[in-house]
Amino acid sequence: MERKKTKNRREFIRSSMRFGMVLALGGVGGLAFRNAAAGKSVWQIDPFKCTWCGRCATHCVLNPSAVKCVHAYEMCGYCDLCGGYLKVGHSDRSTAAENQLCPTAAINRKFIEEPYYEYVINEDLCIGCGKCAEGCTAFGNGSMFLQIKHDICVDCNECSIARVCPSDAIKRINGPDPYLMKGDFSEPA
């Protein structure tokens, strides 16, 4: 008899605690859902904040990094003397290794017409070091810039590059088109 009583008491405590927890979880969930986002958000680099520090190449959980250089052709000046392609102090404007800025030779330089050249990024080789983006922004139009490629990015809960980004340029963004493209020369207001 006494045993049964104890059991009932225990059962009562347990179910009331359970009830309390369901309420608590419901409360937490309800409050959280109120501010919930419907869409999907992904990590992306703001090219206007990026300072090409080079950490994208070394701090991504993937090797090589999911950050790649993206080229906005509509912004390119098609210069022969390309700050994104040639080393500062290059001896010649040629495709020779000693003149190329890219450490993996991921930029293809193609002659269009005198004196213009097209620059195409070979993503398989790009390691996202940002050297070309830095050169292009310093000496050219800034048509080369870094972006996180979402066919590669594994979308970590906390981006390990964002954690070390010195200019705080990596943020989560929403939307069906998860890129922050430099479509225009000016920074969007």
Binding site: S91, A97, P103
Partner: peptide
């Protein structure tokens, strides 16, 4: 090597050396 090349822009041997090293590195 690249710095050296800046002083000797016409040193073909140096260029060759850089190219080989670059290929090796990549």
């Amino acid at each position: 090597l690249v710095q050296r090349l800046a002083f000797e822009p016409n040193n073909e041997q140096l260029k060759q050396e850089i190219r080989e090293l670059d290929l090796l590195a990549r």
